[in-house]
């Protein structure tokens, strides 16, 4: 009997793309920011990156062994978490604190929820929030690398929060040679990484553009001292963790909405919260908290913007 009709169940279209391939491309796209971090913040930045990545991978290994799950540390997702956490801390953070943050990010932020794909919140940001709540003094003191030593310096956003005028040009903000978290300062390096992700098709412009656009709009309208519509929006989108957050953390496949409309709503929500925290909040920067807060709304956004069948009623919540 000849086989003329083959019956199989879905999926029918197969792709070469795998989770680990995507993850390792994301790691590659994060390398420019790492190079910039070492250039601006010197060797301490390199130590931080290595410590965070190694401890993240080891924690993932330990958790998967203890919980009796298949060991999948080769897929690169723990490496990304480690890298992003390192990019989210100050260069002067003691290494053991960074390691503790990394362990917390993987164990509590990811594995407790069931591992890759099941975590509600971005693990790296969970780690950062833990460090912010635990060691606020160490997390909010920022440095630059000068003549082989770390020199304490206020971030431009802190200067603005204190009511001053930051002494940085847009070019400095774009290139990243100023105080801040080690991976967030260089917009140029982050945009190179973002281009790689866009070229590979792993992220779309929906979340980042709506996020950055909302922050620009909000800070332009409300951010100025000379009344409405006088804010320095270019300063606000170039400084702080906005570029790192918008391109690399708000676009995390696991913790962001599936549909394009949902992603736009997600980005707008992040932008609103970030602007509110920056302009009227107690802390100078709000990117990490805004993404964490919006992470919690993702199931609702997914449901709200789910494609409907013809005639199907939309159910809120």
């Amino acid at each position: 009997m000849s086989k003329q009709l083959v019956i199989t169940s879905s999926p029918h279209i197969r792709d070469k793309e795998t989770i680990s391939r995507i993850m390792w491309w994301v790691v590659i796209s994060l390398i420019p920011a790492g190079i910039s971090a070492v250039w601006v913040f010197g060797l301490p930045a390199l130590y931080l990156i290595v410590a965070c990545v190694v401890s993240a991978v080891l924690t993932e290994l330990a958790c998967q062994k203890v919980m009796g799950r298949p060991v999948r540390i080769g897929d690169g997702s723990a490496v990304i978490t480690g890298l992003l956490l390192a990019y989210n801390v100050s260069a002067g953070l003691p290494l053991w604190m960074a390691v503790l943050g990394s362990v917390f990010a993987i164990a509590i932020g990811k594995q407790v929820f069931g591992g890759l794909g099941r975590n509600i919140f971005n693990p790296a940001l969970v780690g950062r929030a833990f460090l912010m709540a635990s060691f606020p003094a160490y997390m909010t003191r920022f440095y630059v690398w000068k003549d082989g030593a770390l020199v304490s310096q206020a971030t431009p956003l802190t200067v603005v929060k204190m009511g001053g005028v930051p002494a940085v040009t847009y070019k400095t903000l774009f290139l990243g040679n100023y105080a801040g978290c080690i991976g967030e300062t260089s917009v140029l390096a982050l945009l190179i990484g973002a281009l790689i992700l866009l070229w590979r098709g792993y992220i779309s412009l929906h979340t980042p553009l709506s996020y950055i656009g909302t922050v620009a709009l909000m800070t332009w309208i409300f951010g100025g001292k000379a009344g409405w519509f006088s804010g320095d929006w270019l300063f606000h989108i170039l400084s702080g963790g906005l570029m790192l957050g918008a391109w690399f953390m708000a676009t995390d496949m696991v913790t962001s909405p599936i549909t394009k409309k949902g992603q736009v709503a997600f980005g707008i929500g992040c932008g609103l919260i970030t602007s509110i925290l920056r302009l009227w909040g107690g802390l100078p920067e709000g990117v990490s908290y805004s993404i964490l807060i919006m992470n919690a709304f993702v199931p609702y956004l997914d449901n709200l913007f789910r494609p409907r069948r013809l005639g199907e009623r939309r159910r809120w919540i």
Partner: peptide, 18 residues
């Protein structure tokens, strides 16, 4: 000893209980 402040805060209580 550098205290891990989060454990003195409410989230720390939830975490330890968990």
């Amino acid at each position: 000893f550098v205290p891990v402040l989060m454990f003195a805060l409410p989230p720390g209580a939830l975490l330890v209980l968990g």
